[in-house]
Structures are given as C-alpha cells and as structure tokens.
Design a protein around this nucleic acid. Structure first.
Length: 347
DNA sequence: CAAGCGTGGTC
DNA sequence: TGACCAAGCTT
C-alpha cells in the first residue's frame, strides 16, 4: 500500500461521515443501497439526496420491489431531484437486474457498465464500495483532489484521462471502496472548489498545488459557453369544476415523462402574445398574470409568462384534467411547481 | 464527442 | 445576483 493511500485511509477512519447509505465499518454493503445512492448522487449534492434516498428505500426496500413499481410512481417520488432520465433508467435497471441477474447486481465493472444509467464512475463505485473489488471511481471530487495533488496543468475536460490514470495509481490493493469514499469525502469537505481547508488535509505536505501555487486554481478548466435565454407562454386552462388541463411530456428529452401545463414553444426569439395564443390548447379568453416564472436549466435560462383562461366550448381531447388539490398526485418538475405557485399568488 | 440533461446552495 | 458548482450518463 502506498504511503499516500495509508495517510488518506487513516484520515477516513477518523473523520468518516455518517451517511444513510454508508455501512458501519466491517458491515457488508448492500449493493442495492450502494447503487441507489450512487445514481441519486450523480451531479447532485449529499444534502439534496438524503431525503429522497430514505423515501425510496422505505417504499422499495429491494430491487425486486422497485422492478415491480410503475414508472410513473418512480418519477413521482423522484420529482424535484432533477435529471429525470436517471429515474427512468433506475426503473429500467431494476427490471434488468431482477430478470437477468435474479435480483443480484453483477460484481464486475464490465457487466455493471451494461446496465442502464450506470456509466464508468458508477460501475467503479459499485464494484469497489459494494463488492470490495479494486476499482477507481473518478468523479468531480477525485478530479479536483488529484489535479491539485499532482498540480495538473492540462485543462478539463481534456485532462480527464490523465486524472483518471493518476487516481488509479493511488488506489490501494485492499480497501478500494473505503479509499474511493475517502477521496470523495476529502473533496467534499476539505479539498473543496473554493477556500480549501488545506490545514486539515492529510496530504497537506505532499500536495504539489499547495507547495507551488494556489490549490483553488485547480483543476484548470476550459471556459464555459454562455447560457441563452428562452421565453414562452404557459397556459393555465380550467373548466367549470375547477380542474386544470395538464399533459405528459414525451419520454425522451427535457423533463421526459413528467407532467406539465401546456405551453408554447420555448425559444430565444420571443413570441408575441398573439402568436402564443394560437398555440393554446383550446380557444379561451386569456388573461396574462403579472410577472414572470424564471427557471434555469443546465444549458439555458427560461422565462415564462402565464396565461390564465377558462374553457369555452369543447374540451381538448388530449391531456388530463386535474383538480388543483390533486396536483400532488402527479410528477411535477420544479418549473411547473413554480407555475402553480404563481397562479396561487394571484388568487 | 460535444451537447443535452435539473435543481438547490454558495459566494 | 448571476455564475459556479455537485458522488455523470447518454447519444
């Protein structure tokens, strides 16, 4: 075992955080729980994940339970966590593990990689954390820690391969799972993007970036493209009994499979209200609510104006009529919750 | 392989 | 207050 790995594992044994999906030392990890937490933690903070993790484990304690659920139930419980393709793949993966592997996750990275929603990081995380195999999951934390430890000048994302190779050289033959979690804990609590707590770092004395530069200047990154702003109109259409019209978004793409209120296209070139109303789900006397619903996605900003109307004539054939008090029964993305909030503010 | 894909917290 | 960032995957 390298000196560095020993230093980090010693630190981890002292400072290890107690997380819901983390087993006590010496206990066997449950691959289902490791998998569930790793999927949820993709691009998502520990603080956000905790309550979702508990809710999912309580509702579906085993992978077979999850495989038996309806996709809509899964999307519903996932609402607000974002990146909804994860929820769709989570369900698909549970079905595959149940059918192809008799409910037991495969142990090796290669077969884990074949499962939906499991990429190089997650395959290595499950292999090491759940099964104790020597594997090196490389996430944003590991990239940051390694880029500082070795003061890597090459910029991300180009540097990914080099950083992964350096991380592998650090991984010890035994306790690879603990080592992986230690690396991520270090990145999450000490070797943070801004204001790193170097004084508390087990690698303080050998960190090249600390010795020769400012660690927070690493990893180097390519400049990001600016986010455009798209705009559109969203329609809050009610009928006599107060029910509002909703529809399900297509399976693929943005907010796939989630429920929404009908809207015009969202585009960078602003639509006039006149043009937008032609895209309404039904003819109605529309009144525009004051203000704007703002939301930022990964690659664009969105500003929606809300048009409120009451059905006159024949109702649209597509869509679902939902009483506002029953909105909680449906999988609403945060954007659509903001629309609901705007409506209730204006009543 | 670059782009698409959410959301909430932080500074 | 707006940009940055978080235990990435898919196409």
């Amino acid at each position: 075992m390298t000196d560095r790995a020993t230093q980090l594992l010693d630190w981890y044994d002292r400072e290890r955080r107690d997380l819901p999906w983390r087993m006590e030392p010496g206990q066997n990890a449950d691959p289902y729980k490791v998998w569930m937490s790793e999927i949820m933690l993709q691009q998502t903070t520990v603080a956000s994940v905790k309550s979702y993790y508990k809710a999912f484990l309580e509702k579906w304690p085993t992978v077979q339970d999850l495989a038996g659920a309806e996709l809509d139930e899964v999307l519903h419980l996932w609402q607000g966590l974002g990146y909804y393709a994860r929820a769709r793949n989570l369900h698909k993966c549970a079905v595959e593990v149940t059918r192809q592997y008799n409910g037991r996750f495969p142990e090796d990275e290669k077969r884990l990689l074949d499962l939906p929603g499991i990429g190089p990081y997650t395959a290595a995380a499950i292999a090491s954390i759940a099964f104790g195999n020597k594997a090196t999951p490389v996430d944003g934390n590991v990239e940051r820690v390694v880029s500082r430890l070795f003061k890597v000048e090459e910029k991300l994302p180009k540097a990914k391969k080099k950083l992964a190779e350096l991380a592998q050289t650090l991984t010890p033959q035994t306790r690879a799972g603990d080592f992986a979690q230690a690396m991520m804990d270090l990145g999450a609590t000490i070797c943070t993007p801004k204001k790193a707590a170097c004084g508390l770092c087990p690698w303080m004395k050998e960190c090249e970036a600390r010795l020769k530069a400012d660690p927070t200047d690493y990893p180097r990154k390519e400049a990001k493209k600016p986010k455009p702003t798209r705009t559109g109109y969203v329609f809050w259409l009610t009928r006599k009994d107060g029910a509002v019209l909703m529809r399900r978004r297509p399976e693929k793409g943005l907010l796939g499979g989630m429920m929404e209120f009908p809207s015009s296209d969202w585009q960078e070139k602003a639509l006039s209200r006149q043009e937008a109303q032609r895209k309404a789900p039904a003819p109605a006397l529309w009144s525009e609510l004051e203000g704007t619903v703002r939301h930022t996605f990964t690659h664009f900003h969105l500003e929606l104006k809300v048009l409120k109307g009451r059905i006159s004539g024949n109702p649209p054939t597509t869509g679902v009529w939902v009483l506002p008090e029953n909105l909680q029964d449906y999988a609403l993305p945060t954007l659509m919750k903001k629309v609901v909030k705007k409506i209730f503010e204006n009543r």
